[in-house]
Write a protein that binds this DNA or RNA. Structure first.
Length: 197
DNA sequence: TGTAATTTGGACGGTAGATG
DNA sequence: CATCTACCGTCCAAATTACA
């Protein structure tokens, strides 16, 4: 199944499993109901920022939107079976490494980030706290983390590893001139930072 | 600067339940 | 059965954004 088709089905299933209408999910996620409807009908390719908001509305990390809740956990995710999703806005590509259905506390994602591109995740009141470690494999990335305190910024080079807690706003930027590649390890923290009713 | 794609809010039509 | 209301998802025009 194409990743967009899978995403559309997964989003609709998640929404219905939570008993939410388009309007309710729109209010909860900050994404308009029209946009959610378009995604569910595969009539648009949502940006990473939009998907990040939707995942957060379900209390899930972004990679969870690309992995099916497999009834029987598979210990191996073959390269050919790993879902790859490309952000239409920036062209950045994320490959879901962790096998589906595995109840592991860690999720692994490989990211290819085009030179000169940026991706901005901005969620005013995140529902789910996510701990994340970023291991640079190739190239450079500039990570800016903005929360309640002063913004923090790190320029990462090949081999560097950054551990961070996702705050309200995080910007990934590849200053170029080469495309970057890195590994993300994500865990959901025990205590979500804040939660709306 | 023009074009294409994404995103939004209002308008619209379909459906289910309540009421007379 | 007809009508009304509420709710839901889709359609549409316009604004915004990215890119050549």
């Amino acid at each position: 199944m194409q990743i967009d088709a899978f995403l559309a089905q997964r989003l609709r299933e998640l929404r219905q499993a939570h008993g939410l209408t388009l309007e309710q999910l729109a209010e909860r996620s900050g994404v308009s109901r029209s946009m959610i409807s378009l995604i569910e009908r595969q009539e648009t390719s949502p940006t990473a920022a939009v998907l990040h908001k939707l995942a957060d509305a379900f209390g899930l990390p972004l990679p969870a939107l690309f992995t099916p809740p497999a009834p029987t956990p598979q210990p191996v995710a073959r390269l050919a079976d790993q879902p790859v999703w490309t952000d239409p806005a920036s062209g950045y590509q994320r490959r879901q490494l962790t096998p589906g259905g595995v109840a592991a506390p860690v999720e692994l994602v490989e990211v290819h980030f085009p030179a000169g591109q940026s991706v901005d995740f901005d969620i005013p009141a995140p529902r789910v706290g996510i701990e994340q470690q970023l291991w640079m494999l190739e190239g450079n990335m500039l990570i800016t983390l903005a929360g309640a305190a002063e913004p923090q910024r790190w320029l990462l080079a090949s081999g560097d590893c950054l551990a961070m807690t996702l705050g309200e706003r995080i910007t990934f930027h590849n200053p170029g001139p080469r495309s970057a590649r890195y590994l993300l390890a994500l865990t959901r923290s025990a205590a979500p930072s804040r939660r709306l009713p």
